[in-house]
Structure formats: C-alpha cells, structure tokens
Design a protein around this nucleic acid. Structure first.
Lengths: 205, 205
DNA sequence: TTAATTTGTTAGTGATTGCTTACTTTCTTA
DNA sequence: TAAGAAAGTAAGCAATCACTAACAAATTAA
C-alpha cells in the first residue's frame, strides 16, 4: 500500500530523516530499524533494500546531513568589516548553524566513542576546518597590527569554544530554546571579552 | 572460585570501575553485563546480586564517580592572588579535573540524550555549580573595580567554556594526550585573552 | 497494455541480551 | 569448627534485534 507521491527518492529521504531523529534521541544502538522504517512510513525491508544494513544507513546519514560549508564562505565576506562586527557575524552564524544541526551535533557527541572515525570526519569537516579559517583571519589582523600577538589557532579555538560551550550547555544539556535577543546578547558579550578582555584599565580604588 | 582478598566491597568497586570503563567506550547499551562482570573478575550473576539491574548499576556509577567538589573549594584559596594567577589556577584545576574524569565526561556526553535527567544531575553538580561560584568571584572583582562591568555568569561560562572546548576537541574527540607544558601554555593564553583581550591598544600602522 | 521497478506482507532465523532459578562451593567470623 | 554470607556453576527463558526468503500487490515507464 504505497502512498501517493512517494517514490524511491522520497522514501530514501524519509528514511534518512527518520534515522536522524531517532538516532539523535535514542543513540545508534537504541534506534531500531523497525522503528526508523515505521517513522519514515515504510516497512522495515524497504530500509534494507535501500541501504543494505543499519550501519550503511548511519554512514549515509552522517554524509548527507553534514554541516554546510557556509561558514567558510562567510569569512571572506566579513573581512571589510571591523573586527568587532566581523566576529559578531561569525559568532552568530556559528551559533545558527549549531542550532540548525542540533540533531547531528547530538549524534556526534553520543557516538564519538563508539565510532570515532566516522565522527572525526564530521568534526574535521566542520569545526576544525572552521578553526583553521578563523585562525588565518586572525593572523592577517595580527600582521596588520590590529590584534596583538598570540597563537592564532588557539585564539580561534577559544572564540568558537566559548560559543560552542554555550550551545552545549543551554540547548543540548538543558534543552532550552534561545531567542534571537538572547543569542545576540550572548555573542556580543563574548566578542567584547574576546577583543577587549575584562580587566578594568581605567585604574580603580 | 573466589580469589584471595576479594571481599564484597572490592567486588562492588571492581564492578563499578569495569562499568565505568566499558560504558565510556561502548555506551550504556553497548556494554553488556556479562562483559562488565568478566572485566571485574566476577560472574554475571554477582553483578545482579549487587546491583539488581544494569540500570541501577549505571545510576550508582553516576553517583559514585561524580566530580569532586574540589574546584569549589579552590576559589576561596585563590582569592588573595592576582586575577591573573587566580584564573590560571582555576583553569588548570578545571582542566585537571576534566582529565581525571575523562570517562565520566564521555559517558555524560554519550548518554545525555537517552538519560537526560541522570546526566543533568552530573552537570548541575559540577559545571553549572562551578559557573555559579566563579561568577560570584567575578562579581566581587567587579565591585572592587578590578574588572569592568559584564554579565558575571556569562563571563564565567565563557572562561570555562574555552577550556572545556579545548578538552573536548583535543582529548575526547582527537584522543590526544596533553602534557603539562602544553596545558600550561593553553591556559595561560586563555587567561590572557580573557583578561586583556586580543586587540592591540598601542595603535598600529 | 506490457514490462520493469518498487514496495508490502508474512514469516522466520540466528544471535544476543538482561535477568532468573536452583544448587554448589568458598570465605569469613564468632 | 560450625553457620551465615558471598560468590560460582550451569542452564535457560523471554524478549529483542538486524536481517532474509518468497511471493503478492502497486506504481511507473515504455
């Protein structure tokens, strides 16, 4: 009893989407092929006919739902802005991407011990690459004298790490929604700290 | 065939330790009771006689291997130091604790979607509490005029987040060891960024 | 309409897993 | 040394899970 308009491609997509949701909730081992198929609106054997095995389905999921390369493209666009505006734009885009790919991040964190190689692919395709690009941007600003000397990669990791930890703590661990006002406020605070520090330079007493 | 010197308490501890290691490697569902028992040097039924069920064993594990409250006690001790030295001490102690409890952190990240309540207990017993304590410390420094005005809790989260992200990326994701030289270098860089920012204030051209 | 493709149905297999029952052996301690 | 506590042995149950076989029905494309 195939439903109207449900051809092979849509079935495949429906299966991947169902797998993404269920695996992110129950983990790879906790999500059963039967349940994934049911959520996708097909029978179990259709899942196996499409992907061969549960593990191949998982691999396809990691490939297709990977992060977009949109952040890498963002940095060139942002270069003409002030460091303040540039970092704000990068930070907000980073947080948006994390929110968009929340399920994938959950899977990555959940399965990294069991499937370290598969997860490392996601990681290096996204965060470590982003650290690299941002680090190069910092190096340029250092050469121009805008920024002081520091290890640019370590700095890039620090900046993205602040935002990632915020995301991990609020969205993933606490399950909170963050509205765009709060998101803005947080990233602005982080940018300020990152650029200017927290020490009062005006003297005190 | 009980081995010498292996009484009930040691058996219990051995089971918890084996569960910690196996669950951190294979996940809760991936670690079997049989394997846990074998690693502990006892038979499977001994596991059930001690803990009743796999889930109760898991709960005991989360309770007993929780983080030490040593970080909370650290902040009072560090108050007489300069902000620079204080943050360095706090950062290093935080990273040490994370390394010490690496397996627990892994379990926490892996199981947070499946057992959110149990994991939240760990989280709030440790990191969120630490954010709180560090935030209060920042507030005091702000009142003294040492630090500028900023949301103290957000700042605390930023500082610890930088370090946590570093740990997550290097130790947990990449599986790297970090020696104390590198650890020192990283934390010093982070403290510097956090306190003074990265902007060159001496003018440039 | 015909032929190929895709999906459904039904039933099942073999392996694993958490957990139990019933009974024996070993250790501790009084 | 006697008794209770703790651990072992062996067998297995009931449920679940990934995956398959064989055939029927529905959809699509020619």
């Amino acid at each position: 009893m195939r439903k109207k308009g449900q051809d092979s491609i849509k079935t495949r997509e429906a299966l991947l989407k169902a797998a993404l949701e269920l695996i992110s909730r129950r983990g790879y081992l906790g999500a059963t092929t039967k349940e994934i198929a049911r959520k996708a609106g097909v029978t179990e054997i259709t899942l196996f006919r499409h992907f061969g095995s549960k593990e191949q389905l998982f691999e396809q999921l990691l490939k297709e739902y990977s992060f977009l390369p949109k952040l890498r493209d963002l940095i060139p666009k942002v270069k003409r802005l002030s460091a303040e505006e540039a970092l704000l734009g990068i930070g907000l885009a980073f947080l948006d991407t994390l929110k968009e790919r929340e399920r994938l991040v959950k899977i990555m964190l959940s399965e990294m011990n069991i499937y370290p190689d598969k997860v490392k692919v996601i990681y290096s395709r996204f965060i470590s690459e982003l650290i690299d690009v941002l680090g190069k941007y910092f190096s340029e600003l250092q050469k121009k004298g805008v920024l002081i000397k520091f290890d640019a990669l370590t700095g890039a990791r620090a900046f993205l790490g602040m935002i990632f930890s915020y995301f991990l703590s609020e969205v993933i661990l606490q399950g909170r929604m963050i509205n765009s006002r709060e998101q803005s406020r947080i990233v602005k605070t982080y940018v300020n700290i990152f650029l200017h520090g927290v020490v009062n330079r005006k003297g005190h007493g």
